[in-house]
Amino acid sequence: MWSWVLHRITGVAIFFFLLVHVLDTSLVRITPEGYNAVINTYKTPILGLGELALVAAIGFHALNGIRIILIDFWSVGTRHQKLLFWIVIALWIVLLAGFAPRQIINIIAEMS
C-alpha cells in the first residue's frame, strides 16, 4: 500500500513541478535577461533543497514504476513484489547518496 501511496503523491507533485518548469523554460523565447532572473531563483538554498526533493520524488516514481512494470509483465513479478519494493528503496538510497552531496556542495558554493 505504501508504494501505491508514495507513487501517487510523488506523481502529483512531479506533475505540478512540470507545469511550472515548462512555463519558466518558455521564458528563453522572450528575453535572456528574463530567463536568467527566474532561473537564478532555482540556485537559492531553499530551491536547492527543493531540487533535492524533486530528484528524490522522481527517483522513487521512476524506480517504483519499473517495479510496477515488472509485476505486470514478469511471470514471477507478483510473487516477488515485496522484495522488489525493498530493491526500489535500496536503489533510491544509492541514487540520493550520489546526488545529495553534489547538490549540497553546489548550494554552499552558490551562497559564498
Partner: peptide, 28 residues
C-alpha cells in the same frame, strides 16, 4: 514510463549533476 526514465535521468544528469549542476544553467 520506460522512455521517460531514460529521458529524465539523462536530463537531470546533464543539468543538475555534471559540472557545477544548477549553478551553470542560464540562457547561454
Amino acid at each position: 514510463g520506460i522512455l521517460l526514465v531514460v529521458l529524465i535521468f539523462g536530463h537531470l544528469f546533464v543539468n543538475l549533476f555534471l559540472g557545477t549542476g544548477v549553478r551553470a544553467i542560464d540562457f547561454a
